[in-house]
Simulated assay, not measured.
Amino acid sequence: MLFVVLPAYNEEAGLELLLDDIRKACQGIPTQIIVVNDASTDHTLDIAQNYAQSFPEVQVLSHPQNKGLGGSLMTGFKHAFAQRRILRKQCSEWVGYDDIILTMDADNTHPADRIPFMVEQIDQGADLVVASRYAPGGKQYGLNPLRQVLSWGAGQVMTLFFPVPGLKDYSCGYRAYRASVLESTYMIYGERLIESRSFAGMVELLVKVAGYCREIREIPFDLHYEKKQGKSKMKIMATIMGYFALILRLKKERWGWVEWVGE
């Protein structure tokens, strides 16, 4: 089973089109699409619920109060874990090891046609697949220079402090996880799996999960930020500070201040 987790905050402009694209891309793949409405103030929830009435593979969860990207991912992950247990009970021959949990932005900037290829990579043995605009063949369109520098710089800084061999894109949320690996990591960290409320939460999740993956693959994709409608949710300074806070916290947790100072 493929579980597609979509954190959605004020995404009324592109959500329905994205859901159409995901369903088209996933034809032939058993799929559940989990839309997590993060207390949107526009019509995101209405659009998602109306869509789910016509397509039962779409499930809608909603936060009464905004929990941020990390909180929305956690809600979607826990729902996917629960669905896996339900499927296991319903079918004695069902094997959950090869389930996949895929995350992507709900603003239609991530092309859904990459999903089958990412699923294929997991089926071939990868535990984590990251769609990367920095991998050979990847491109990005519509990002202003400041956002480009921030995304590239985040990868450089994280590579320095938390290197993951072969990985260039640390901040992109378009990823496929082997469900058993992600759930095992959650069992270790619990609610601390994603503590960052800013966009640094995507980097935190990557760093924590990567430590339990036998194989991580990076595939190219084209980020189409020009397709995004409405204002960006990213607050530049808050994101930068979030990255530095993440580095300090993870370094302290892993090695302690004495060991870090001695590096």
Score class of each variant (00 low, 15 high):
Pro7Asp: 14
Pro7Asn: 14
Pro7Cys: 14
Pro7Thr: 10
Tyr9Glu: 01
Asn10Pro: 04
Asn10Cys: 13
Glu11Gln: 15
Glu11Val: 15
Gly14Asn: 15
Leu15Gly: 01
Glu16His: 02
Leu17Ile: 10
Leu17Val: 11
Leu17Lys: 12
Leu18Cys: 02
Leu18Phe: 00
Leu19Cys: 00
Leu19Tyr: 00
Leu19Ser: 00
Leu19Thr: 00
Asp20Glu: 04
Asp20Ala: 06
Arg23Ser: 06
Ala25Met: 08
Gln27Thr: 10
Gly28Met: 01
Ile29Arg: 06
Thr31Lys: 02
Thr31His: 03
Gln32Tyr: 09
Gln32Glu: 14
Gln32Gly: 08
Val36Asn: 05
Asn37Gln: 03
Asn37Asp: 15
Ala39Gln: 03
Ala39Phe: 09
Thr41Cys: 05
Thr41Val: 09
Asp42Pro: 03
Asp42Ile: 04
Leu45Ile: 12
Ile47His: 00
Ala48His: 08
Gln49Met: 11
Tyr51Ile: 00
Tyr51Leu: 00
Gln53Phe: 05
Gln53Trp: 02
Gln53Glu: 12
Ser54Phe: 10
Phe55Gln: 07
Phe55His: 13
Pro56Phe: 07
Glu57Asp: 13
Glu57His: 08
Val58Glu: 01
Val58Pro: 00
Gln59Leu: 13
Val60Ala: 08
Ser62Val: 04
His63Pro: 01
His63Arg: 04
Pro64Thr: 04
Asn66Cys: 09
Asn66Ala: 13
Asn66His: 15
Gly68Ala: 14
Gly68Gln: 13
Gly70Leu: 09
Leu73His: 08
Leu73Phe: 13
Thr75Gly: 01
Phe77Gln: 01
Phe77Val: 01
Lys78Asn: 14
His79Leu: 12
His79Met: 10
Ala80Ser: 15
Ala80Thr: 06
Phe81Cys: 03
Phe81His: 04
Ala82Cys: 07
Gln83Phe: 07
Arg84Asn: 05
Arg84Gly: 06
Leu87Ile: 05
Arg88Gly: 05
Arg88Tyr: 04
Lys89Leu: 14
Lys89Thr: 10
Gln90Trp: 01
Cys91His: 11
Cys91Asp: 15
Ser92Trp: 06
Ser92Met: 06
Val95Trp: 12
Val95Thr: 15
Val95His: 15
Gly96Gln: 06
Asp98Glu: 03
Asp98Asn: 10
Asp99Leu: 02
Leu102Asp: 00
Leu102Thr: 02
Thr103Gln: 05
Thr103Phe: 01
Met104Pro: 03
Asp105Trp: 05
Asp105Leu: 06
Ala106Asn: 01
Asp107Tyr: 02
Asp107Ile: 02
Asn108Arg: 10
Thr109Trp: 05
Pro111Phe: 09
Ile115Asn: 10
Ile115Leu: 13
Phe117Met: 08
Phe117Trp: 12
Glu120Val: 06
Gln121Asn: 12
Asp123Val: 08
Asp123Trp: 10
Asp123Glu: 15
Gln124Thr: 04
Gln124Ile: 00
Gly125Val: 03
Asp127Lys: 03
Leu128Ser: 02
Val130Gln: 13
Val130Pro: 02
